[in-house]
Amino acid sequence: MTSKLRATLVSILLAAQLALPPAAASAEGTAPTDTETQELVQKGLTIFEIDKEVARLNDQDAAIGEQIKQNESNIDKQQGQVDTTRKHAGKVLRAYYTGERDSIWMMLFSVRSFTDALRMFEYLQMIVRNDHHALNTYTDSVKKLTSLQDDLTKSRAKLQETKANYLTQRERLVKLQEELDRQLAASTQAEAIASQIKSLNDDWKEKGIPVVREYLDSLSQGFRELPQFLAKDSKYMDLSNPKNLLIQMGDTDFNNYLYAKSDLLKHLSFTFEEGYITAKGKKDDVDIAIEGKFDLVQQPDMNEVRFTVNKLQFNGYQLPDTTIADFSKDFQLGFIPKKFISQLDVTQVEMRKGLIVVKLKLSL
Protein backbone atom coordinates (compact mmCIF):
# COMPACT_ATOMS: atom_id res chain seq x y z
CA MET A 1 0.00 0.00 0.00
CA THR A 2 1.45 3.34 -1.05
CA SER A 3 1.95 6.17 1.38
CA LYS A 4 -0.60 8.25 -0.46
CA LEU A 5 -3.29 5.53 -0.20
CA ARG A 6 -2.50 4.95 3.45
CA ALA A 7 -2.89 8.67 4.11
CA THR A 8 -6.19 8.72 2.22
CA LEU A 9 -7.62 5.81 4.29
CA VAL A 10 -6.54 7.43 7.53
CA SER A 11 -8.25 10.64 6.47
CA ILE A 12 -11.46 8.76 5.63
CA LEU A 13 -11.44 6.93 8.97
CA LEU A 14 -10.89 10.16 10.88
CA ALA A 15 -13.67 11.86 8.97
CA ALA A 16 -16.03 8.97 9.67
CA GLN A 17 -15.13 9.00 13.35
CA LEU A 18 -15.78 12.73 13.59
CA ALA A 19 -19.10 12.30 11.81
CA LEU A 20 -20.37 9.79 14.39
CA PRO A 21 -22.51 11.09 17.29
CA PRO A 22 -20.72 11.30 20.66
CA ALA A 23 -22.54 8.26 22.10
CA ALA A 24 -21.41 6.07 19.21
CA ALA A 25 -17.88 7.42 19.27
CA SER A 26 -17.51 6.56 22.98
CA ALA A 27 -19.18 3.16 22.68
CA GLU A 28 -21.59 2.69 25.63
CA GLY A 29 -20.11 5.14 28.16
CA THR A 30 -17.10 5.69 30.36
CA ALA A 31 -15.56 3.33 32.86
CA PRO A 32 -15.70 4.82 36.37
CA THR A 33 -12.67 5.11 38.62
CA ASP A 34 -12.57 3.32 41.99
CA THR A 35 -13.41 6.59 43.73
CA GLU A 36 -16.36 7.23 41.43
CA THR A 37 -17.61 3.68 41.96
CA GLN A 38 -17.40 4.10 45.73
CA GLU A 39 -19.34 7.36 45.49
CA LEU A 40 -22.09 5.63 43.51
CA VAL A 41 -22.28 2.74 45.99
CA GLN A 42 -22.35 5.30 48.83
CA LYS A 43 -25.23 7.07 47.13
CA GLY A 44 -27.08 3.77 46.81
CA LEU A 45 -26.76 3.14 50.57
CA THR A 46 -27.96 6.67 51.35
CA ILE A 47 -30.99 6.18 49.09
CA PHE A 48 -31.72 2.84 50.78
CA GLU A 49 -31.74 4.44 54.24
CA ILE A 50 -33.67 7.58 53.30
CA ASP A 51 -36.27 5.40 51.59
CA LYS A 52 -36.76 3.62 54.93
CA GLU A 53 -37.21 6.98 56.65
CA VAL A 54 -39.76 8.07 54.05
CA ALA A 55 -41.71 4.84 54.61
CA ARG A 56 -41.55 5.35 58.38
CA LEU A 57 -42.83 8.91 58.09
CA ASN A 58 -45.62 7.75 55.80
CA ASP A 59 -46.69 5.16 58.38
CA GLN A 60 -46.44 7.76 61.14
CA ASP A 61 -48.59 10.13 59.12
CA ALA A 62 -51.29 7.47 58.79
CA ALA A 63 -51.10 6.60 62.51
CA ILE A 64 -51.44 10.24 63.56
CA GLY A 65 -54.36 10.64 61.17
CA GLU A 66 -56.14 7.75 62.88
CA GLN A 67 -55.30 9.21 66.28
CA ILE A 68 -56.84 12.54 65.26
CA LYS A 69 -60.03 10.78 64.14
CA GLN A 70 -60.21 8.98 67.49
CA ASN A 71 -59.58 12.23 69.38
CA GLU A 72 -62.35 13.98 67.46
CA SER A 73 -64.74 11.11 68.23
CA ASN A 74 -63.79 11.21 71.93
CA ILE A 75 -64.32 14.97 72.01
CA ASP A 76 -67.81 14.60 70.53
CA LYS A 77 -68.71 12.02 73.20
CA GLN A 78 -67.18 14.09 75.97
CA GLN A 79 -69.01 17.19 74.78
CA GLY A 80 -72.27 15.29 75.28
CA GLN A 81 -71.13 14.32 78.78
CA VAL A 82 -70.31 17.94 79.56
CA ASP A 83 -73.75 19.08 78.39
CA THR A 84 -75.46 16.48 80.61
CA THR A 85 -73.42 17.27 83.72
CA ARG A 86 -73.82 21.00 83.08
CA LYS A 87 -77.60 20.62 83.34
CA HIS A 88 -77.31 18.76 86.65
CA ALA A 89 -74.82 21.27 88.01
CA GLY A 90 -77.06 24.12 86.88
CA LYS A 91 -80.01 22.71 88.81
CA VAL A 92 -77.89 22.44 91.95
CA LEU A 93 -76.59 25.99 91.66
CA ARG A 94 -80.08 27.37 90.99
CA ALA A 95 -81.37 25.55 94.07
CA TYR A 96 -78.78 27.26 96.25
CA TYR A 97 -79.25 30.61 94.53
CA THR A 98 -83.06 30.60 94.94
CA GLY A 99 -82.85 29.50 98.56
CA GLU A 100 -84.42 26.09 97.94
CA ARG A 101 -81.64 24.35 99.85
CA ASP A 102 -82.03 26.81 102.75
CA SER A 103 -85.66 25.82 103.19
CA ILE A 104 -84.67 22.15 103.33
CA TRP A 105 -82.16 22.85 106.09
CA MET A 106 -84.84 24.76 108.02
CA MET A 107 -86.78 21.49 108.26
CA LEU A 108 -84.29 20.43 110.94
CA PHE A 109 -85.89 22.89 113.31
CA SER A 110 -89.36 21.44 112.81
CA VAL A 111 -88.58 17.88 113.92
CA ARG A 112 -90.14 16.70 117.18
CA SER A 113 -87.75 13.96 118.27
CA PHE A 114 -84.07 13.18 118.29
CA THR A 115 -84.69 10.15 116.05
CA ASP A 116 -86.47 12.31 113.46
CA ALA A 117 -83.60 14.80 113.64
CA LEU A 118 -81.04 12.07 112.86
CA ARG A 119 -83.10 10.84 109.92
CA MET A 120 -83.52 14.36 108.60
CA PHE A 121 -79.80 15.05 109.01
CA GLU A 122 -78.91 11.88 107.08
CA TYR A 123 -81.34 12.92 104.35
CA LEU A 124 -79.77 16.38 104.15
CA GLN A 125 -76.27 14.85 104.03
CA MET A 126 -77.35 12.70 101.09
CA ILE A 127 -78.61 15.81 99.27
CA VAL A 128 -75.31 17.61 99.91
CA ARG A 129 -73.30 14.61 98.71
CA ASN A 130 -75.37 14.43 95.55
CA ASP A 131 -74.92 18.17 95.02
CA HIS A 132 -71.15 17.86 95.41
CA HIS A 133 -71.09 14.85 93.12
CA ALA A 134 -73.00 16.74 90.41
CA LEU A 135 -70.66 19.73 90.62
CA ASN A 136 -67.50 17.57 90.73
CA THR A 137 -68.71 15.45 87.82
CA TYR A 138 -69.26 18.57 85.75
CA THR A 139 -65.81 19.93 86.68
CA ASP A 140 -64.13 16.61 85.84
CA SER A 141 -65.95 16.32 82.51
CA VAL A 142 -64.85 19.84 81.53
CA LYS A 143 -61.23 19.02 82.48
CA LYS A 144 -61.33 15.83 80.43
CA LEU A 145 -62.79 17.71 77.46
CA THR A 146 -60.04 20.33 77.72
CA SER A 147 -57.40 17.59 77.90
CA LEU A 148 -58.81 15.89 74.80
CA GLN A 149 -58.84 19.19 72.94
CA ASP A 150 -55.20 19.79 73.92
CA ASP A 151 -54.30 16.29 72.68
CA LEU A 152 -56.04 17.03 69.40
CA THR A 153 -54.11 20.28 68.98
CA LYS A 154 -50.81 18.49 69.66
CA SER A 155 -51.70 15.68 67.26
CA ARG A 156 -52.51 18.14 64.49
CA ALA A 157 -49.22 19.98 65.07
CA LYS A 158 -47.36 16.64 65.03
CA LEU A 159 -49.12 15.72 61.80
CA GLN A 160 -48.03 18.97 60.14
CA GLU A 161 -44.45 18.40 61.32
CA THR A 162 -44.49 14.83 60.01
CA LYS A 163 -45.89 15.90 56.64
CA ALA A 164 -43.25 18.63 56.28
CA ASN A 165 -40.47 16.18 57.19
CA TYR A 166 -41.92 13.62 54.80
CA LEU A 167 -41.92 16.08 51.90
CA THR A 168 -38.34 17.13 52.68
CA GLN A 169 -37.03 13.57 52.80
CA ARG A 170 -39.09 12.55 49.78
CA GLU A 171 -37.64 15.40 47.73
CA ARG A 172 -34.16 14.45 48.91
CA LEU A 173 -34.78 10.82 47.95
CA VAL A 174 -36.07 11.65 44.46
CA LYS A 175 -33.12 13.94 43.77
CA LEU A 176 -30.56 11.33 44.85
CA GLN A 177 -32.30 8.60 42.86
CA GLU A 178 -32.32 10.74 39.72
CA GLU A 179 -28.62 11.50 40.15
CA LEU A 180 -27.78 7.82 40.62
CA ASP A 181 -29.86 6.74 37.61
CA ARG A 182 -28.21 9.36 35.44
CA GLN A 183 -24.71 8.39 36.56
CA LEU A 184 -25.35 4.67 36.07
CA ALA A 185 -26.75 5.30 32.61
CA ALA A 186 -23.47 6.97 31.65
CA SER A 187 -21.30 4.15 33.03
CA THR A 188 -20.05 1.05 31.25
CA GLN A 189 -20.08 -0.76 34.62
CA ALA A 190 -23.69 0.03 35.54
CA GLU A 191 -24.69 -3.59 36.13
CA ALA A 192 -21.65 -4.34 38.29
CA ILE A 193 -22.13 -1.16 40.34
CA ALA A 194 -25.83 -1.89 40.83
CA SER A 195 -24.83 -5.33 42.11
CA GLN A 196 -22.37 -3.75 44.57
CA ILE A 197 -25.07 -1.37 45.79
CA LYS A 198 -27.49 -4.23 46.42
CA SER A 199 -24.79 -6.27 48.16
CA LEU A 200 -23.87 -3.38 50.48
CA ASN A 201 -27.50 -2.63 51.30
CA ASP A 202 -28.15 -6.30 52.08
CA ASP A 203 -25.04 -6.51 54.28
CA TRP A 204 -26.07 -3.39 56.17
CA LYS A 205 -29.60 -4.69 56.70
CA GLU A 206 -28.66 -8.24 57.68
CA LYS A 207 -25.33 -7.71 59.47
CA GLY A 208 -24.64 -4.04 60.10
CA ILE A 209 -27.89 -2.96 61.75
CA PRO A 210 -27.96 -5.85 64.28
CA VAL A 211 -24.32 -5.23 65.29
CA VAL A 212 -24.81 -1.45 65.62
CA ARG A 213 -27.92 -2.00 67.75
CA GLU A 214 -25.96 -4.40 69.98
CA TYR A 215 -23.17 -1.83 70.36
CA LEU A 216 -25.60 0.98 71.19
CA ASP A 217 -27.55 -1.14 73.65
CA SER A 218 -24.36 -2.04 75.55
CA LEU A 219 -23.11 1.56 75.40
CA SER A 220 -26.43 2.84 76.71
CA GLN A 221 -26.14 0.70 79.82
CA GLY A 222 -22.44 1.50 80.25
CA PHE A 223 -22.97 5.26 80.00
CA ARG A 224 -25.92 5.17 82.38
CA GLU A 225 -23.91 3.43 85.11
CA LEU A 226 -20.72 5.48 84.61
CA PRO A 227 -21.31 7.98 87.50
CA GLN A 228 -21.67 5.11 89.96
CA PHE A 229 -18.30 3.77 88.82
CA LEU A 230 -16.62 7.19 88.99
CA ALA A 231 -17.91 7.85 92.51
CA LYS A 232 -16.13 4.73 93.80
CA ASP A 233 -12.64 5.91 92.80
CA SER A 234 -11.26 9.23 94.01
CA LYS A 235 -8.79 9.45 91.12
CA TYR A 236 -11.63 10.44 88.79
CA MET A 237 -13.25 13.04 91.06
CA ASP A 238 -11.61 16.18 92.38
CA LEU A 239 -13.77 17.68 95.13
CA SER A 240 -10.99 19.54 96.94
CA ASN A 241 -12.09 22.96 95.69
CA PRO A 242 -15.83 23.63 96.25
CA LYS A 243 -15.71 26.28 93.52
CA ASN A 244 -14.13 23.94 90.98
CA LEU A 245 -15.56 20.44 91.37
CA LEU A 246 -14.41 18.13 88.58
CA ILE A 247 -14.77 14.69 87.06
CA GLN A 248 -11.86 13.76 84.79
CA MET A 249 -11.37 10.53 82.87
CA GLY A 250 -8.91 9.52 80.17
CA ASP A 251 -9.92 7.52 77.11
CA THR A 252 -7.82 4.52 78.20
CA ASP A 253 -9.68 4.28 81.52
CA PHE A 254 -12.96 4.90 79.70
CA ASN A 255 -12.31 1.99 77.34
CA ASN A 256 -11.29 -0.30 80.21
CA TYR A 257 -14.49 0.58 82.05
CA LEU A 258 -16.59 -0.31 78.98
CA TYR A 259 -14.65 -3.53 78.38
CA ALA A 260 -15.43 -4.62 81.93
CA LYS A 261 -19.13 -3.96 81.32
CA SER A 262 -19.48 -5.95 78.09
CA ASP A 263 -17.45 -8.42 76.04
CA LEU A 264 -19.02 -6.96 72.90
CA LEU A 265 -17.56 -3.53 73.66
CA LYS A 266 -14.06 -5.05 73.60
CA HIS A 267 -14.42 -4.83 69.82
CA LEU A 268 -14.84 -1.05 70.07
CA SER A 269 -12.18 1.52 70.97
CA PHE A 270 -12.88 5.15 71.93
CA THR A 271 -10.40 7.96 71.36
CA PHE A 272 -10.91 11.40 72.93
CA GLU A 273 -9.92 14.26 70.64
CA GLU A 274 -10.09 18.03 71.06
CA GLY A 275 -13.81 18.75 70.88
CA TYR A 276 -14.99 15.33 69.71
CA ILE A 277 -14.75 11.55 70.17
CA THR A 278 -14.10 8.74 67.72
CA ALA A 279 -14.95 5.08 68.21
CA LYS A 280 -13.84 2.33 65.86
CA GLY A 281 -14.36 -1.38 65.96
CA LYS A 282 -14.68 -4.56 63.96
CA LYS A 283 -16.74 -7.63 64.74
CA ASP A 284 -16.55 -10.47 62.22
CA ASP A 285 -16.82 -8.70 58.85
CA VAL A 286 -18.67 -5.65 60.20
CA ASP A 287 -16.48 -2.56 60.48
CA ILE A 288 -18.06 0.31 62.44
CA ALA A 289 -16.80 3.87 62.94
CA ILE A 290 -18.55 6.48 65.10
CA GLU A 291 -17.81 10.16 65.60
CA GLY A 292 -19.58 12.28 68.19
CA LYS A 293 -19.19 14.30 71.36
CA PHE A 294 -20.45 14.66 74.91
CA ASP A 295 -22.91 17.54 75.29
CA LEU A 296 -24.49 19.15 78.34
CA VAL A 297 -28.27 18.77 78.24
CA GLN A 298 -29.93 21.03 80.79
CA GLN A 299 -33.10 19.74 82.43
CA PRO A 300 -35.35 21.16 85.18
CA ASP A 301 -34.36 18.68 87.90
CA MET A 302 -30.92 17.40 86.92
CA ASN A 303 -28.57 17.96 83.99
CA GLU A 304 -27.38 15.19 81.70
CA VAL A 305 -24.11 14.49 79.93
CA ARG A 306 -25.28 13.08 76.61
CA PHE A 307 -23.25 11.44 73.87
CA THR A 308 -24.39 12.79 70.50
CA VAL A 309 -23.53 10.75 67.40
CA ASN A 310 -22.66 13.00 64.46
CA LYS A 311 -21.25 10.44 62.04
CA LEU A 312 -21.74 6.71 61.60
CA GLN A 313 -19.91 4.50 59.11
CA PHE A 314 -20.44 0.90 58.08
CA ASN A 315 -17.58 -0.86 56.27
CA GLY A 316 -16.22 2.52 55.15
CA TYR A 317 -19.56 3.91 53.95
CA GLN A 318 -21.32 6.84 55.60
CA LEU A 319 -24.86 6.42 56.95
CA PRO A 320 -27.20 9.42 56.52
CA ASP A 321 -28.48 11.64 59.31
CA THR A 322 -31.88 9.93 59.18
CA THR A 323 -30.29 6.64 60.25
CA ILE A 324 -28.48 8.29 63.16
CA ALA A 325 -31.70 10.02 64.26
CA ASP A 326 -33.57 6.71 64.12
CA PHE A 327 -31.01 4.98 66.35
CA SER A 328 -31.02 7.96 68.75
CA LYS A 329 -34.75 7.47 69.37
CA ASP A 330 -34.17 3.92 70.58
CA PHE A 331 -30.98 4.34 72.61
CA GLN A 332 -30.23 6.98 75.26
CA LEU A 333 -26.46 7.45 75.35
CA GLY A 334 -25.67 9.55 78.39
CA PHE A 335 -25.33 9.74 82.15
CA ILE A 336 -26.71 11.88 84.97
CA PRO A 337 -24.26 12.27 87.87
CA LYS A 338 -26.93 13.65 90.21
CA LYS A 339 -28.77 10.32 90.16
CA PHE A 340 -25.85 8.77 92.04
CA ILE A 341 -24.43 11.84 93.80
CA SER A 342 -27.50 13.84 94.77
CA GLN A 343 -25.56 16.90 95.98
CA LEU A 344 -23.77 17.46 92.65
CA ASP A 345 -25.04 18.62 89.27
CA VAL A 346 -23.28 19.13 85.92
CA THR A 347 -22.53 22.65 84.67
CA GLN A 348 -20.09 22.09 81.80
CA VAL A 349 -18.52 19.36 79.64
CA GLU A 350 -15.17 19.68 77.86
CA MET A 351 -13.56 17.29 75.39
CA ARG A 352 -9.78 17.45 75.39
CA LYS A 353 -7.08 15.38 73.76
CA GLY A 354 -7.26 12.05 75.59
CA LEU A 355 -9.48 13.43 78.37
CA ILE A 356 -13.09 14.28 79.22
CA VAL A 357 -13.65 16.95 81.88
CA VAL A 358 -17.05 17.35 83.57
CA LYS A 359 -17.47 20.42 85.77
CA LEU A 360 -19.87 20.19 88.70
CA LYS A 361 -21.58 22.41 91.24
CA LEU A 362 -23.12 21.80 94.64
CA SER A 363 -26.87 21.36 94.36
CA LEU A 364 -28.46 21.13 97.79
Results as ranks from 00 to 15, higher is better:
residue 156 R to D: 07
residue 41 V to D: 01
residue 310 N to P: 12
residue 19 A to F: 08
residue 115 T to L: 15
residue 174 V to I: 10
residue 294 F to D: 14
residue 115 T to I: 13
residue 260 A to G: 15
residue 282 K to D: 00
residue 213 R to E: 10
residue 40 L to Q: 10
residue 5 L to D: 07
residue 173 L to F: 05
residue 202 D to W: 05
residue 32 P to K: 01
residue 309 V to R: 10
residue 57 L to C: 02
residue 179 E to R: 04
residue 101 R to M: 11
residue 207 K to D: 04
residue 145 L to P: 03
residue 113 S to L: 06
residue 48 F to M: 09
residue 344 L to T: 03
residue 216 L to W: 08
residue 326 D to C: 04
residue 166 Y to G: 07
residue 264 L to S: 03
residue 224 R to V: 06
residue 319 L to G: 00
residue 283 K to L: 14
residue 300 P to W: 07
residue 18 L to P: 08
residue 236 Y to T: 00
residue 135 L to D: 01
residue 11 S to P: 10
residue 351 M to C: 15
residue 129 R to A: 10
residue 79 Q to T: 14
residue 269 S to E: 13
residue 217 D to A: 10
residue 161 E to G: 01
residue 229 F to R: 09
residue 32 P to T: 01
residue 65 G to S: 09
residue 52 K to T: 09
residue 137 T to L: 03
residue 61 D to Y: 14
residue 154 K to F: 08
residue 96 Y to V: 14
residue 72 E to Y: 02
residue 293 K to R: 14
residue 283 K to E: 11
residue 162 T to F: 03
residue 155 S to L: 04
residue 158 K to M: 09
residue 192 A to F: 01
residue 21 P to M: 06
residue 135 L to I: 09
residue 279 A to V: 15
residue 260 A to Y: 07
residue 274 E to P: 06
residue 155 S to F: 04
residue 139 T to H: 05
